[in-house]
Nucleic acid binder design. Structure first.
Lengths: 197, 197
DNA sequence: GGGTGGATTCTAGCAGTGCTAGACATCCTG
DNA sequence: CAGGATGTCTAGCACTGCTAGAATCCACCC
């Protein structure tokens, strides 16, 4: 009685992932506004209700895509941080990799950072991939720095601002490299503890 | 033949503004997802088609709200910049005012910076209010600085990142003041021309 | 092998969305 | 007062996310 149920669960898990990747591909090729339950169902060759047997709703599907995205982002950032050598380089490498990620997978990035999802950030129930990605920013600062998290938050926010304003055309696409350079120079080439108490 | 037409045009302009403010109020009290053409029409006590005699579509209405928002933001930032006294203070004052604006009018801010609109940024056809708001950032840097625009872009992006990540719960609401302090200290208390050629 | 029960999947539909064609009313003009 | 333009509304289209209940399938047991 067990083997057959296991096979069914396996198939079900496959279909689960199939839905996620189908949603992601559809979003990446035509944008999230094209990802409707009907088109998604057609693409996985099932009717709409099966989507709801896997996910609580569309937002849950977006969240699942985003979660995969955070996994990829974390490894992407980690590789960048580890291949950077100079004592000052890691942060710059990570930020550049971050912007690269955002511009090359705009739809995925949107799912992670601008669309409403049910992912809990900065909490005890924050999924590991999110935490891992954030940690890559934190690890760019020396452990002796007692305010690494704060530094990481600000750096992350800044590059996120660059990414999202550029993507939505509110800042010229060109000059992104120069802006990043300015930002990093300011954050890195400065004494560790700022002015105020 | 003229007086009566003028009155009609005046009434029409009134209704035009009525629609904009109604949309804004609805968005500010219940969020943009509650701003539907039906609810908006009911609120201005007209049928839906009259909305389309004033605007090309919903996006045009959002854009009109956003445009008003940029006007207010510009004056808000200007006041902050002008009342700041210390030689180092203007940028800090403007950024704080910016974050204040974003957190106190989240819906308006969304219309301006995250929802899709037909406003052209950073172009020759950029509406004056947008330009005016951006100029407030630029004017925080001395005219002798040949890269003021770049500095302004990065600063704006950074505070925008703080604003939007905080608003969407992706960064804790608390600690915003501290983050801003760190950011400003880094950008301001540093020699003018960075490293690279 | 052939029912049978339970899980699975689909059909059909609801209430809502943005938007619009065409009927209707309204009001200035000759 | 009739004519005609101007303005407004009713009704509807094609779409959205989501779901109740019918239909189907399939492992199991005798």
């Amino acid at each position: 009685m067990s083997a057959i149920h296991e096979r069914r669960e396996r198939e079900r898990a496959n279909r689960h992932q199939l839905i996620i990747t189908a949603a992601r591909e559809l979003a990446e090729t035509e944008g999230w506004e094209a990802v409707t339950t009907r088109r998604l169902a057609e693409r996985v060759e099932y009717s709409q209700p099966v989507l709801y047997s896997h996910f609580n709703g569309k937002e849950a599907i977006v969240s699942a895509v985003a979660l995969d995205g955070f996994d990829e982002l974390a490894t992407h950032l980690r590789r960048a941080r580890q291949t950077a050598t100079h004592p000052e380089q890691p942060l710059r490498a990570v930020c550049r990799a971050y912007l690269e990620f955002a511009t090359e997978r705009p739809a995925l990035y949107q799912a992670m950072f601008v669309l409403p999802t049910n992912l809990k950030f900065a909490s005890t129930e924050t999924p590991p991939p999110l935490r891992a990605a954030f940690t890559e920013f934190v690890d760019c600062f020396p452990p002796t720095n007692t305010r690494r998290e704060l530094f990481a938050e600000v750096t992350w926010s800044a590059v996120h601002g660059l990414a999202v304003l550029s993507d939505s055309g509110r800042i010229p696409q060109a000059g992104q490299e120069e802006r990043l350079d300015f930002l990093i120079t300011r954050i890195v080439d400065t004494p560790n503890e700022p002015t105020t108490p």
